[in-house]
Amino acid sequence: MELEISESISLQALTQFHAKELLETVNTSRDDLSVYMPWTDTLTDMAGARSYINARKKGKLYGSQWFAIYYDGAFSGVFGIKYIDPVTKVSELGYWLSTAVRGHRIINQVLNVILPYLSSSTTVDTVEFHCLESNEASIRVVERAGAKLVKYVGNNMDIPNKDQRLGIYALKL
């Protein structure tokens, strides 16, 4: 499945086909990604890239969908609908981008397509984003989309600065 977001941005369903590009992209952005993403320590070779993809594709969470992000034809990151809770009607969205493509409002453009899809094609009425309090770029992205800080929770991720809190941002659709 491919979803055209704009002339320069597209999403492809994440598959093992993306493992090599995923690894190459993580390698070029590892220093930046490792500050916020605990999985960078295990994604160091092709086996790690395949495992990363399998963990997302084989997850048993209802409504989960994962996409490779392409910007100007190059693999540039991953976007995920992590789950859809059919009872609470909440979905968590997550993403990461390579260092090279940040600043082009790629995720906001993706959200301009994904949020209406979730609203019209699923039971979701609220989306959540989980952002570490020091991740100012991600916070700006989700606030630009209209999400508001609901609460802070403890952070149990294995990353530098483990003492920072995780902000839960919510957006009613």
Score class of each variant (00 low, 15 high):
residue 167 G to Q: 03
residue 103 G to P: 00
residue 121 S to V: 02
residue 83 Y to G: 13
residue 133 E to C: 11
residue 103 G to L: 06
residue 112 N to E: 07
residue 129 F to A: 13
residue 134 S to L: 03
residue 160 P to G: 12
residue 151 K to P: 13
residue 67 F to V: 14
residue 149 L to W: 10
residue 79 F to Y: 11
residue 24 E to Q: 09
residue 17 F to S: 03
residue 100 A to Y: 05
residue 148 K to T: 03
residue 82 K to S: 04
residue 100 A to M: 03
residue 136 E to T: 12
residue 129 F to Q: 12
residue 24 E to R: 13
residue 47 A to C: 12
residue 12 Q to M: 05
residue 132 L to E: 02
residue 88 T to R: 05
residue 57 K to Q: 02
residue 158 D to R: 15
residue 59 G to C: 11
residue 107 I to Q: 04
residue 47 A to P: 07
residue 130 H to P: 14
residue 173 L to M: 01
residue 116 P to I: 02
residue 95 Y to C: 15
residue 31 D to R: 15
residue 162 K to R: 09
residue 7 E to T: 06
residue 160 P to C: 06
residue 165 R to V: 03
residue 60 K to C: 12
residue 56 R to I: 07
residue 139 I to P: 02
residue 133 E to W: 10
residue 113 V to S: 05
residue 133 E to S: 13
residue 143 E to I: 04
residue 169 Y to V: 05
residue 124 V to Y: 01
residue 25 T to Y: 07
residue 52 Y to N: 12
residue 71 Y to W: 15
residue 137 A to M: 13
residue 89 K to N: 01
residue 92 E to C: 09
residue 56 R to A: 09
residue 145 A to C: 10
residue 45 D to I: 00
residue 117 Y to H: 06
residue 64 S to F: 03
residue 76 S to N: 05
residue 19 A to D: 00
residue 55 A to T: 15
residue 81 I to N: 03
residue 92 E to D: 14
residue 135 N to Q: 12
residue 110 V to Q: 06
residue 7 E to A: 08
residue 57 K to H: 00
residue 23 L to E: 00
residue 160 P to V: 01
residue 130 H to V: 06
residue 4 E to F: 07
residue 18 H to A: 03
residue 70 Y to P: 04
residue 167 G to S: 06
residue 44 T to M: 08
residue 165 R to S: 09
residue 135 N to S: 13
residue 139 I to T: 08
residue 172 K to G: 00
residue 153 V to K: 12
residue 134 S to G: 11
residue 63 G to I: 14
residue 126 T to K: 10
residue 80 G to K: 02
residue 69 I to N: 02
residue 162 K to T: 02
residue 97 L to N: 14
residue 17 F to W: 00
residue 45 D to E: 00
residue 40 T to Q: 09
residue 9 I to S: 09
residue 27 N to Q: 15
residue 170 A to I: 12
residue 164 Q to C: 05
residue 75 F to S: 14
residue 34 S to R: 13
residue 144 R to D: 03
residue 83 Y to T: 08
residue 27 N to P: 15
residue 81 I to Y: 05
residue 9 I to L: 11
residue 49 A to W: 08
